[in-house]
């Protein structure tokens, strides 16, 4: 079932001097099965936007529809919506509270009202999906490394078996290896389990490598909503929004300016390498 945002506006501190329009007339359709990246500068409204997807925030104007129903309706069960749209916040390891990892992962499915057996099964499955080391299932949360904690926290949301998985900066504060591991895992979730993934990030590289659709937020508005290749061809405009293009695209553009016949539309490292190789070969 697609998620539809119809002219959604959100205003903080309405009616006071510090009134901020966090979202300004945002309309989006998020069909099932896509891998979407949301990028934007700090304060562009990314985090506000994702909180509308699972009803943690309700729009001041406009509506959000799930399954054809307005999530602002009084008889709409937002608890149920939160099961279908899993939201993983920034630094999700800060939400861990149980004595061991397994018990913490069980929290979500238990809240959904599943039986003990179903809950435990869901937790096992979720921990396996995030490749959590089996010998640590019953370890205390405090014995884990940063990357492991984050996996455990993501598993805590996955255990509810959502159809949509929204991840707010899942790689923040991780080392390069940890980043790649988490992103690889997310990408695998999309491919193997067919989950719809919405990845909020400010790393252009992450977005370019993994997603199929990029939504660029700027001052509460949707500035671009297109394929990564198309979005990153607007290098100048993105820079004005305080964003950039992937390093590969930037290098390709610089080489092109110096007279090499490199494809300016490359976005990933591999594409850039191939294109530079081809250009050098043609020169010889």
């Amino acid at each position: 079932m697609p998620l539809i945002l119809d002219h959604v506006s959100q205003i903080y501190n309405e009616g006071t001097k510090e009134s901020v329009r966090a979202l300004d007339d945002v309309s989006l359709i998020i069909p099932e099965g896509q891998f979407i990246g949301i990028i934007g500068h700090t304060g562009s409204g990314k985090s506000t936007l994702v909180q509308h997807l699972n009803g943690l925030m309700l729009p001041k104007k406009g509506s959000v529809f799930y399954n054809g129903k307005d999530i602002s309706d009084k008889d709409f069960s937002r608890k149920e919506l939160r099961q279908h749209v899993g939201l993983v916040f920034q630094y999700p390891e800060h939400q861990l509270f149980e004595t061991d990892v397994f018990a913490d992962v069980c929290f979500g499915p238990k809240n959904m009202g599943l039986s003990k057996k179903e809950t435990e099964l869901a937790a096992f499955e979720a921990l396996r999906m995030v490749h959590f080391p089996e010998d640590l299932y019953y370890a205390s949360v405090f014995e884990l490394s940063g990357g492991q904690k984050r996996r455990a926290a993501i598993a805590g949301v996955l255990a509810m078996k959502p159809d949509f998985l929204v991840l707010d900066e899942p790689t923040a504060g991780l080392d390069p290896v940890g980043r790649l591991e988490i992103l690889g895992m997310v990408s695998e979730l999309h491919k193997k389990s067919g989950l719809t993934i919405i990845l909020v990030s400010h790393s252009m590289e992450d977005v370019a490598t993994y997603v199929e659709r990029v939504i660029v937020m700027d001052r509460g508005r949707v500035a671009y909503d297109d394929t990564p290749r198309e979005v990153f061809s607007h290098a100048e405009e993105l820079k004005e929004m305080g964003l950039g293009v992937p390093e590969s695209t930037e290098i390709a553009a610089m080489l092109r300016a110096r007279g090499f016949d490199v494809d300016p539309k490359v976005i990933t490292e591999k594409e850039a390498a191939d294109s530079i190789y081809a250009a050098l070969k043609a020169r010889r």
């Binding site: 939160r82 939201l87 916040f89 939400q95 509810m160």
Partner: peptide
């Protein structure tokens, strides 16, 4: 909010 998202 994080716990609400997990159905709390």
């Amino acid at each position: 909010k994080a716990q609400l998202a997990r159905g709390a």
